[in-house]
Nucleic acid binder design. Structure first.
Length: 587
RNA sequence: GCUCCAGUAGCUCAGUCGGAUAGAGCAAUUGCCUUCUAAGCAAUUGGUCGCAGGUUCGAGUCCUGCCUGGGGCGCCA
């Protein structure tokens, strides 16, 4: 109900001017959702804030405001309460009309942004030379979710993966490819992709054991930098191997297929220009053989200004250089208005540094918002960063598989208890959707900035703020449809919605708040707010479902309740889809 | 040493631009299935919001200091 809020704010501003004169024009009426439903639907806190300025008690100010306030088309008469709060309660007829409007709207009342922007979302940047591990879970799940939400709100979203596809590790892999799979360079040969990690491990083993091999690897890097054709071909084969493996996992996780790979190799030709431009601007300083930009507000352990090294003393570039090139390209060529980096919180300094240099170089202007969205870590039960038993990084694929196995186990136990028979295809599908959904939801439902302890049992729990709980609410609605042979699409656009019971009001009001939540997420990029909203929605639906008969109800309640149930299911489906999670008809 | 982040119920965590009596889930205790999937609903118990000051009509939220934990701090990404 963004539109309702906007209109109410206008009315308040008019009332403020009418009551106290033009100098209060443009005063924010501090209109927020009521802190407690017993106070109504919205409250204005403006009277308290004006007390000092106007030299009157807040309650008197509030009284004067509501005398001038005309909201009769939306609300019951406003009430002054407490220290000077102005409470507003929406009229039933208004709520019913709003529900009717969203019922016939495929977007469920969520308007497209009036100021669409070109937004770049920075997807995780796996080092292509390694198999993806758990460290990529949060950036990919949260980045994907933010991209989906912004796109749904009408923004032009570009999804870019800044993959590590260049540099030293590739020398080793290219050298190993030449040695172990010489035929791969002759014809287009299929290498077993599931074996990416053993390919990497084997290469690593050769590299560590054999000095001559190390020399060949170094040579390969030089050849790669020099653009040697055969080396480039080998490099492409290795990239391909990795990309296809990663893509498989991305697809399985349900990440958007529209991710564009724009890795380090893409920026490689632009790096020299970055250095030259920094030099031209007088920002570049040579220090101990390295080219640096000295930073404002950062010091090293001795208290001296800290440099950001953009070209190493051996002439090589590092990640700061590539990131700066990306900043420049994204503003100058992509013309992005907002660039979002959901990246681990450990990199707070790095982003503050490159943004500072980007600003001083004139690449970041007031016209573009560079938004670093720090992510907390995924921790093990010991409260330390999640590691496998052997102390290595946990492979993402193992994590997904284990969640699915847990979900399958839960489902099979329940089927046995209930004496249900289901096909293997049904069981496999439910386990897959629940398992993947649970992992993603567990990640998204935490405030993105805080770390959380990874626990299969909690994320797959069927009660609480979890994916299965929401899926279950959705399934319940579909059960009504099957049982009553209701086609929700045919309920009719002129069917009346009647709100009588408290549970109906509570559910209905919540259904109308989706656009407010999405607007909040659009600004602060915290997906856990959407999760919270969906959890509340599911709870309110379950209360409604528990208290009120639907199929057995008399008309007009029956149709009205069917519409509320349908709206709930569609809201959950839309909400979960924005989180990147699928729904199930039965579970 | 500098710097960033965190500290809220036994546990895991929310907490909007500072707003009314700080909320969920789990765990514990107890009710509710001849009725649309009980993977649910209802009820009870549980708090010095790390500590001390300050700003404010009003502070979990803003400011200062301190304590504790974690991250980062010159050629890895």
């Amino acid at each position: 109900m963004n539109e309702t809020l906007t209109q109410l704010k206008d009315r308040f501003e008019q009332a403020l001017v009418a009551a106290f004169g033009d100098e209060l024009a443009g005063t924010d009426p501090i209109l927020v959702p009521a802190s407690n439903s017993k106070f109504g639907d919205y409250q204005s806190n403006v009277a308290m804030s004006l007390a000092k300025k106007l030299g009157k008690p807040p309650r008197a100010i509030a009284e004067q405001i509501i005398q001038q306030l005309d909201v009769a088309d939306f609300c019951h008469p406003p009430v002054v309460a407490g220290a000077g709060f102005i409470n507003l309660a929406l009229k039933t007829s208004y709520l019913e009309a709003q529900l009717h409007a969203i019922h016939t709207d495929p977007r469920l009342g969520v308007a497209r942004s009036q100021h669409p922007q070109r937004v770049i979302v920075d997807y995780p940047s796996p080092n292509i030379a390694k198999e993806v591990h758990v460290g990529l879970l949060r950036p990919s799940v949260i980045g994907d979710c933010l991209a989906r939400i912004l796109e749904f709100l009408g923004h032009d979203v570009i999804r870019l993966s800044h993959i590590g596809d260049w540099g030293t590790p590739f020398g080793m892999l290219i050298a190993y490819l030449r040695e172990a799979y010489p035929e791969a360079l002759k014809e287009s040969n299929d290498i077993d992709l599931g074996d990416l990690s053993s390919f990497y491990k084997a290469a690593r083993k050769r590299f560590d054991a054999d000095e001559a091999f190390q020399e060949r690897a170094r040579l390969a890097v030089v050849q790669l930098q020099a653009g040697d054709e055969e080396t480039i071909q080998a490099w492409k084969i290795v990239c391909d191997l990795s990309n296809r493996t990663n893509r498989k996992i991305y697809d399985w996780m349900g990440l958007s297929p529209e991710i564009q790979e724009r890795g380090e190799s893409f920026y490689n030709p632009l790096l020299l220009g970055v250095i030259e431009e920094l030099d031209r601007l007088g920002l570049l300083v040579k220090d101990s053989g390295a080219k640096c930009v000295f930073l404002d507000g950062f010091t090293n352990k001795e208290g001296k200004p800290l440099p950001l090294i953009v070209q190493k003393s051996d002439g090589g570039y590092n990640y700061a250089t590539t990131d700066l090139a990306a900043i420049r390209y994204r503003t100058e060529v992509d013309q992005a208005q907002r660039v979002i980096y959901p990246v681990g919180a450990e990199q707070t300094n790095h982003f503050a540094q490159i943004f500072q240099v980007g600003r001083r170089a004139g690449w970041i202007t007031d016209e573009v918002e560079f938004f670093y969205a720090p992510l907390g870590s995924i921790l093990g039960e010991d409260g330390k960063k999640l590691k496998s038993r052997s102390g290595e990084a946990v492979r993402l694929i193992d994590l997904l598989n284990e969640a699915i196995a847990h979900a399958r186990n839960d489902l099979e136990t329940r089927l046995k208890e209930e004496g249900r028979q289901e096909t293997e295809a049904f069981i496999a599908n439910v386990a897959n959707v629940v398992g993947i959904g649970a992992i993603k939801y567990a990640d998204l439902s935490q405030n993105r900035t805080s770390s959380y302890i990874f626990n299969y049992d909690k994320m797959l729990a069927l009660q609480g703020n979890t994916a299965p709980y929401m899926l279950y609410a959705y399934v319940r609605v579909q059960g009504i449809s099957r049982k009553g042979e209701i086609n929700f699409a045919e309920l009719g656009t002129d069917a009346a919605i009647v709100l009588q019971d408290e549970a109906e009001f509570t559910l209905a009001k919540h259904l109308l708040q989706l656009d407010e939540i999405l607007s909040a997420v659009e600004i602060d990029l915290l997906p856990n707010r959407l999760c919270e909203y969906l959890f509340e929605l599911s709870k309110k639906f379950n209360q409604f479902y528990d208290r009120l008969p639907i199929l057995q109800a008399e008309e007009p309640q029956r149709t009205s309740r069917l519409i509320l149930a349908d709206l709930t299911a569609r809201t959950i489906e839309l909400g979960l889809s924005l989180l990147g999670i699928s729904v199930l008809e039965r579970m």
